[in-house]
């Protein structure tokens, strides 16, 4: 791990944005998450790592109640955002999702033009008062997602006609355009080349000044580069959660150590 450049950690005095306690998720009879307790800080990048199928996406989807759309999924325990239980009956999941944006594991651009893809959220939430303002939002979102230069001449082309990596960045732009308070990113760089990856990582670092970002990644280097906190999941449990530097240099749990040194996963 010595060759890894670890960014300086400044997570001390920030307050907690998301507070999850005893979260359990079942898909039908099958338990996918067991008693996850985690507290995600404001203005921080938190990385979720762990072997495939350990429940990272599942937990991420709990944070904006996307699991509501899976008929077989049941979520137990409590998750609070800014002190408010998001599974409370009074909470409108639609408003919650506007506040907690998400980039999915598989790129899923709408079969609309690139422009309309990015403008979708702002239009729904009435974020722009005119065409000019909307144009500005679209441009700045595409710039943040490092896609602007590639698509600025063909904003009318279909979003589904882009390459896989471009589609993923389009989805990032789409999520950023709604200016959420929390951004959940499920393996946003899995289809990107090193240059685009670096740009997205830069974006993530930039976003940290305003939002909290939760990122799922299979790249340990990426987790080390962009995150301040890291959570390691294994077989549906949260094994270890702590500062990224500490997780990568002196993991407390033997399973974490085994994973980051490449012995399980």
């Amino acid at each position: 791990m010595d060759d890894m450049r670890l960014v300086e950690r400044d997570v001390n005095q920030l307050h907690s944005k998301i507070e999850a306690k005893g979260v359990q998720v079942y898909y039908g009879e099958k338990q996918a998450l067991k008693d996850v307790d985690v507290s995600i800080l404001d203005r921080t990048v938190t990385a979720f790592i762990g072997p495939s199928g350990c429940g990272k996406s599942t937990f991420l989807r709990c944070l904006n109640r996307m699991n509501d759309t899976v008929a077989s999924a049941r979520v137990m325990g409590s998750i609070q955002i800014d002190g408010e239980d998001i599974y409370d009956a009074r909470v409108d999941p639609v408003q919650l999702r506007a506040k907690v944006g998400m980039v999915f594991q598989k790129p899923n651009p709408f079969p609309k033009s690139i422009y309309d893809n990015v403008a979708y959220g702002p239009k729904i939430h009435g974020l722009a008062t005119g065409k000019a303002e909307l144009d500005a939002i679209v441009e700045s979102s595409l710039r943040k997602a490092a896609l602007w230069n590639e698509v600025k001449d063909r904003l009318d082309a279909s979003g589904t006609g882009l390459s896989g990596g471009q589609q993923q960045r389009l989805c990032i732009a789409r999520a950023v355009a709604t200016s959420p308070e929390v951004l959940l990113m499920d393996e946003p760089c899995s289809a990107l080349d090193p240059i685009a990856t670096a740009q997205v990582e830069e974006l993530i670092d930039e976003l940290r000044s305003q939002f909290s970002v939760v990122i799922v990644t299979h790249s340990m280097q990426q987790a080390a580069r962009v995150s301040q906190k890291t959570a390691f999941f294994h077989l549906g449990s949260l094994v270890e959660y702590g500062e990224t530097g500490q997780i990568f240099t002196s993991p407390k749990d033997p399973r974490t150590e085994a994973y980051i040194t490449g012995r399980i996963g």
Binding site: N64, R97, N108, P109, Y120, R174
Partner: peptide
């Protein structure tokens, strides 16, 4: 999912 995830 993409649309719902944007708060639609």
């Amino acid at each position: 999912d993409g649309s719902l995830g944007l708060g639609a």
